[in-house]
């Protein structure tokens, strides 16, 4: 087997990233992945305590400048119901409501959330433990399979029903189209949304 010139990993990592951009794949450096999860304050970095409204509660958090809402929710506030499937705006697993609008939490910065109201799947249950109609309907229809996309599907459905309380199945399909399900449970999720509209 022919051996070629030795290659330095750092050089080739840069080439790799350039190559991926050139080949049309996502231009996200793995070096930035999860970087918002820094636990220590890098010297000279701009970090600050901000206050955000999550599930009706004002929460003080120490947020790095580039920190995504998904990171803050999961790793600072312990709200792990919001899932990360891709962390690049492709799958919808991280969907939360921001001022009632379904939003990919992996793709917005926490700093932009200061005057907004954020709702996550943890905020849907009533204080007495009653499930939200969408949650109840998803249980009754056994909509989830593995469940990893479920919180995102639920938040997208809640957002849809707030603007259209009686959607057609086609409207529900369009409304949830930003949420992937690798298990392929789309049919069962739509059954869930239609039932939720009935019981809601």
């Amino acid at each position: 087997m022919e051996a070629s010139d030795p290659v330095n990993s750092k050089l080739s990592r840069r080439r790799f990233i350039k190559g991926v951009i050139a080949s049309g794949a996502a231009a996200t450096s793995t070096g930035l992945w999860y970087s918002a999860n820094g636990q220590t304050r890098p010297a000279g970095a701009v970090e600050r305590m901000i206050r955000i409204n999550v599930n009706g509660q004002l929460r003080n958090v120490d947020v790095a400048p580039q920190e995504t809402l998904a990171s803050t929710l999961r790793y600072k506030l312990g709200l792990t119901g919001t899932k990360l499937g891709c962390n690049r705006g492709e799958c919808g697993a991280c969907t939360v409501l921001v001022d009632d609008i379904p939003t990919y939490a992996c793709s917005v910065l926490t700093h932009s959330m200061k005057s907004k109201s954020i709702e996550t799947v943890e905020g849907l249950e009533a204080p007495n433990g009653d499930l939200h109609p969408v949650q109840q309907a998803f249980v009754e229809e056994l909509s989830p399979q593995c469940g990893y996309c479920t919180p995102g599907q639920i938040m997208a459905a809640v957002g849809l029903l707030r603007t259209n309380s009686n959607p057609t199945r086609e409207e529900a399909r369009q409304g949830l189209a930003g949420n992937l399900c690798r298990c392929g449970s789309y049919d069962s999720y739509l059954d869930g949304v239609m039932r939720a509209a009935q019981i809601g």
Binding site: L79, G81, V121, E122, L131, F138, V139, G147, P151
Partner: peptide
């Protein structure tokens, strides 16, 4: 299933 719909 309840844990899947509540995120717990």
């Amino acid at each position: 299933v309840p844990g899947k719909v509540t995120g717990k």
